[in-house]
């Protein structure tokens, strides 16, 4: 009983995928391959991109840009979030700023980055400004949820401030921060492709722009799947690392 139910559970998503591909295959028969390429055409496109090295060449660029922007956002967002969370004064100063940052249209950032930084820096910058609020707001949330009873305990036992920060603050903020990091990583790949599409000639987004101009719809699909794969891999990697470190107490 147990094995059959776990088998169905394991196969269920696969089953959905098979139905999706079958429907896609059928639908592609009714349309021109420029409108809707068939799954096999897309698979061939992914294969050729992989074999001739273009996949790695452009994906590498996107990954570097994405991780640069994301890394800077974490490096700036965590301290900022901690400060906002701890100090009501800083919260009053920075909170509206962070919220504003979050609602500024992406296209404004993009155009401003072109003017301020030059085209090659645009993708990393766009990733930075879109993920920074996510990291910051989640960190603030974590600080707000710190258990005051534990703080009181550490006052009684005269634990030094740096140790309270390291051993009481950070571990409690960590789950919230990781939730923010997970959302931010998902946003990273979307933002990087968007920015590349409009600003540069290398990278996944740029190749998508080229595929559109050349009406190579199969390539467009191929790059999209590559982006999806990138998102899934980083998400899984994060889940794995989090699970390994936090499983025993969360």
């Amino acid at each position: 009983m147990k094995s059959s139910s776990s088998l169905t559970r394991g196969l269920a998503p696969l089953f959905g995928l098979v139905i999706f591909i079958a429907l896609w295959q059928v639908a592609s028969g009714f349309y021109n391959h420029v409108i809707l390429p068939s799954p096999s055409e897309v698979a061939r496109s992914v294969a050729s991109l992989t074999i001739d090295g273009r996949l790695w060449e452009h994906a590498r660029q996107s990954i570097i840009r994405g991780l640069t922007g994301f890394g800077l956002a974490v490096a700036a967002g965590v301290p900022l979030g901690l400060l906002i969370g701890v100090s009501p004064l800083l919260s009053n100063i920075f909170r509206p700023l962070v919220v504003t940052l979050q609602v500024v249209p992406l296209i404004s950032w993009l155009l401003l980055a072109m003017i301020w930084l030059g085209f090659s820096q645009v993708p990393a910058f766009v990733v930075f400004v879109t993920t920074l609020p996510l990291i910051t707001i989640n960190t603030v949330q974590g600080v707000k949820n710190i258990d005051l009873q534990l703080m009181q305990m550490s006052v009684v036992f005269r634990i030094s401030r740096p140790r309270v920060f390291r051993e009481i603050y950070l571990p409690q903020v960590l789950p919230y921060l990781l939730a923010g990091v997970s959302t931010a990583l998902g946003t990273t790949w979307k933002a990087v492709a968007m920015a590349e599409f409009l600003s540069v000639s290398q990278g996944i987004g740029a190749r998508m722009a080229l595929a559109r101009i050349n009406l190579e719809t199969a390539d467009l699909f191929a790059w999209t799947f590559i982006l999806i794969g990138l998102g899934l891999i980083t998400d899984r990697l994060l889940t794995y690392l989090v699970d390994k470190r936090l499983r025993h107490w969360m």
């Binding site: 009873q149 534990l150 009181q152 305990m153 009684v156 036992f157 051993e167 009481i168 571990p171 936090l246 107490w249 969360m250």
Partner: peptide, 11 residues
Amino acid sequence: YVFQEPRLLLW
């Protein structure tokens, strides 16, 4: 001090 709750560090 012993508090009403254990107040342990879960991590």
